[in-house]
Nucleic acid binder design. Structure first.
Length: 514
RNA sequence: GGCCGGGUGGCAGAGUGGUCAUGCAGGGGAUUGCAAAUCCCCGUACAUCGGUUCGAUUCCGGUCCCGGCCUCCA
């Protein structure tokens, strides 16, 4: 099998480029993480499934990966007009907790979401508040390079001091009208200038503030990423990821800070990659809208689970689209992904029964416990003895992800190989395990039955279900099919699906369908 | 207002200058007491109007509609 060279879309320049790491020993990745003042919504989580696909693809291609995700636990202002309150503080006040409790709670919730989605943990989590000293030092450094100036309410970055400001976002700096949507800050030299440090109001102590050479206040939110990425990954690393909304502002500003810091044209990362949004249709309307924490129109992973949707079904749903296309959320589409995944798992259940236990099957599971190592040895173990025909599917999978992480194509390949009668059962199972290295759907360790989870609003008890099923079995024995069908209808009504097999009648919660 | 990106069958979503996406849903059949699962079969979708071309859903231009960013946000 000839591997397809990995090509990744670089937002910086907007082009597909063949990936080559700076250091062949390890690919360094930085991902913008969450601000931990609320639960992550399922749109936020798309960003991390995307990065996970990137990491799996790199591991599949034989690379070591060092991956940093930051936790923003510094409150940033809810808006320019709303000074004094910040998100962390608001959240703390509302819940009568300290900001540290808030940060800890939502950080844990976030990590738990990633784990439920089978996302490989990063090599390092880095918290903004652990890097205050470094942020001050960094800002000072910028100052000595003449890239900042001080205004009444903060230290500002002068974006005219940097070459090509806004190139990543294709910003038309000249054409931007300052304050078009928001009252601009008095005294800014350029509309695109941004705060490196924001001073606290003179008359009010904020819950989170720090002393600096310029005054008391909190770091601007672009600062932390520049500082932490540089600290852990170096002045120039391989890939920086984030949501598409960061392309025009946050990342442009990060790049500007990096360039001013290093006095160079280097942006800080060779690849800047951005995932598109998950969008939600307006209530009753035809217009789509992104999910947004501040707008409150969001769904959490837990909401999905409460409605009987397994987290891996959500992951499956995300994989049906390219990370660079916006994806329309609907319960129908989600149910479709669930039905699809369920069918795949049923097939794999059958294959497992046919093939029986094997050492290579145990190896397949090890990918779940990797945290940055290449998948080479796993691929080797799984690929042993594959026919040419089977190897062509491996090449298909490889080509799919090599083309900018094209998971929809990988799913097509998976569907085809599970259908291909020219393959042996063992080959199909080995190939499914190989595909799962890239997809991360836990195909070999999850069963179709696992997907069916009890919806939070289910009222019937397991005991009642068992009783009804027994009654139906008795009715069937007595050939009272009318009674048997009535009992089935009763169970269906309660959200329970039953099926008669050779081992008797089994039941499952029906997959959530709105 | 400026900049960027879209509009593909019932739904989601690939892709391409000229016979195929795929999945889900739906229809028909086999099988089943009925179902489930499985197997077989089934759909002239490419916003719109012009242009280029032997040929355009795919290239170019106009129009309409939608989204993102310009404010914290994946």
């Amino acid at each position: 099998m000839t591997p397809t060279p990995l090509r990744l879309f670089n937002s910086y320049g907007r082009e597909l480029r063949t990936f080559t790491p700076i250091d062949p020993g390890a690919v360094r990745i930085y991902s913008c993480g969450p601000t931990v003042y609320n639960y992550a919504h399922i749109g936020n989580l798309r960003a991390y499934v995307f990065v996970d696909t990137l990491r799996r693809t790199l591991a599949w291609k034989g690379y070591n990966v060092v991956h940093v995700i930051n936790i923003t636990d510094v409150g940033h202002l809810t808006s320019d007009a709303d000074e004094g309150d910040d998100k962390m503080e608001l959240s703390a006040e509302r819940q009568q907790k300290t900001v540290w409790d808030i940060a800890e709670h939502y950080t844990q919730a976030f990590k738990s979401d990633l784990s439920r989605l089978n996302i490989l943990p990063p090599s390092l989590w880095s918290k903004a508040t652990d890097h205050i000293q470094e942020m001050i030092d960094f800002a000072r450094h910028l100052e000595t390079h003449g890239a900042t100036y001080v205004l009444e309410d903060g230290v500002y970055f002068d974006t005219s001091k940097v070459p090509d400001y806004g190139k990543l976002g294709l910003l038309d700096v000249e054409g931007q009208e300052a304050g078009k949507r928001v009252a601009g800050v008095e005294g800014k030299r350029n509309p695109t200038d941004f705060a490196v440090w924001r001073f606290s109001p003179k008359d009010k102590q904020r819950l989170m503030e720090w002393h600096t050479p310029w005054g008391i206040g909190a770091p601007g939110w672009h600062l932390e990423c520049s500082v932490m990425a540089m600290k852990y990954l170096g002045r120039q690393f391989d890939i920086h990821t984030g949501g598409i909304d960061h392309r025009q502002v946050h990342h442009c500003n990060e790049i500007a800070q990096n360039q001013a810091f290093t006095c160079s044209h280097d942006t800080g990362a060779n690849w800047w990659m951005h995932n598109e949004f998950l969008v939600l249709r307006n209530e009753g309307g035809t217009e789509d809208e992104k999910m947004s924490k501040s707008k409150g129109n969001f769904l959490t992973l837990q909401t999905l689970i409460d409605r009987g949707v397994h987290p891996l079904v959500y992951r499956m749903f995300l994989l049906t689209a390219s990370y660079r296309s916006s994806l329309e959320f609907s319960w129908d589409a989600l149910a479709g992904a669930g039905a699809h995944l369920r069918r795949i798992l049923l097939k794999i259940d059958r294959l497992k029964a046919e093939v029986g236990p094997a050492d290579w099957l145990r190896v397949a599971d090890e990918a779940r416990f990797q945290s940055g190592g290449p998948f080479d040895y796993i691929r080797a173990a799984l690929s042993e003895g594959l026919s040419d025909k089977a190897l062509r599917y491996v090449a298909d999978l490889d080509a799919a992800v090599a083309e900018d992480l094209h998971t929809p194509r990988a799913l097509v390949a998976l569907g085809e190989l599970l259908d291909d009668k020219a393959l042996t059962a063992e080959e199909q199972l080995r190939l499914a395990a190989l595909a799962d290295l890239l997809l991360g759907l836990c195909l070999l360790v999850t069963t179709a039955a696992d997907l069916a989870i009890r919806p939070a609003d289910a009222t019937i008890t397991e005991e009642d279900i068992a009783r009804l099923i027994q009654a139906r079995t008795d009715a069937r024995k007595a050939k009272d099919f009318a009674q048997a069908d009535a009992l089935r209808a009763q169970l269906t009504e309660a959200g329970v699906e039953i099926k008669d097999g050779p081992q008797g009648t089994e039941w499952e919660w029906m997959l959530a369908r709105r």
